[in-house]
């Protein structure tokens, strides 16, 4: 049976900065914990310990990333478990979070309805910050001034993972050095350059990043309920093992070469 946000006891995890590989692993481990019923539905806010390019599950490593430029800038390249496009991350420049929900929350919904449902609270939060934003199919969060962020969803067992990265600030020149963004990708966007496609939250809100996150968490708490939680030792151990034996290995990173 379909459930609703308030049917669940939502938990918040907001840890100190963690390395990119551990973030990839935590998404898999926590989705599986929620699927198994061992963890209540959870909102996890990410803090990045170091810069990264995160490519989607089905993206070609070679086609998406200029490996030489990434090395030159000390940027780690990692692959996540969900589809979607590459993200360019520098600590402090993005706001990233994951929602780990039981599949019942999106049961019977189309992909599009399910993205809209999962993004609704953050659209409301942005509205309270004075930004008129909306979910733009297939998986963007957009505003009058341009794209703010993107979501990716994947369903695993009895759970759905919905994670979002929003641009807070961005070094567009560096991003374009590291990511290969082709003309075909931009063909139906009606814009001339990739840099112009993103308008970050910093310029739109004038608020520090921490304040934007605090306001977002408040909005989630008010709409859906939210209790403060932390990673359990077993969850962290499982994620560290996944980071080492799966996400940190060449076969996973180059699974789509």
């Amino acid at each position: 049976m379909r459930t609703h946000w308030r049917d669940h006891g939502w938990q918040l995890i907001h840890d100190a900065p963690q390395p990119p590989l551990l973030h990839m692993a935590l998404d898999e481990a926590l989705t599986d914990e929620v699927a198994a019923g061992r963890r209540p539905p959870t909102l996890r806010v990410w803090e990045w310990a170091s810069p990264a390019v995160v490519i989607g599950r089905f993206q070609s490593l070679r086609n998406e990333v200029d490996g030489e430029a990434a090395r030159r800038h000390g940027i780690e390249v990692v692959r996540r478990i969900s589809g979607g496009g590459a993200m360019f991350i520098e600590p402090g420049n993005t706001i990233t979070y994951s929602i780990y929900a039981p599949a019942s929350l999106v049961e019977g919904l189309s992909f599009q309805e399910s993205y809209a449902l999962m993004d609704a609270w953050v659209i409301a939060a942005l509205g309270e910050l004075g930004i008129r934003a909306w979910y733009q199919p297939l998986n963007d969060i957009a505003s009058d001034a341009g794209k703010i962020g993107g979501a990716a969803q994947t369903r695993r067992g009895g759970a759905v993972l919905h994670h979002v990265t929003m641009a807070y600030d961005i070094d567009a020149a560096k991003m374009l050095e590291v990511l290969r963004i082709g003309r075909e990708k931009l063909s139906d966007k009606g814009t001339r350059s990739a840099a112009k496609r993103v308008d970050p939250l910093r310029s739109q809100t004038g608020l520090p990043r921490e304040a934007v996150i605090a306001r977002m968490v408040d909005t989630f708490r008010r709409r859906h309920g939210l209790a403060d939680d932390a990673l359990r030792p077993g969850e962290l151990a499982r994620a560290q093992a996944l980071a080492q034996h799966k996400f940190g290995t060449a076969p996973w990173l180059a699974d789509v070469p």
Binding site: Q59, G84, T154
Partner: peptide, 15 residues
């Protein structure tokens, strides 16, 4: 033949 892209596809093996 190798398919890739920023689409969404489930299950993983479908690729």
């Amino acid at each position: 033949v190798r398919l890739s892209g920023d689409f969404f596809l489930e299950p993983d093996e479908a690729l």
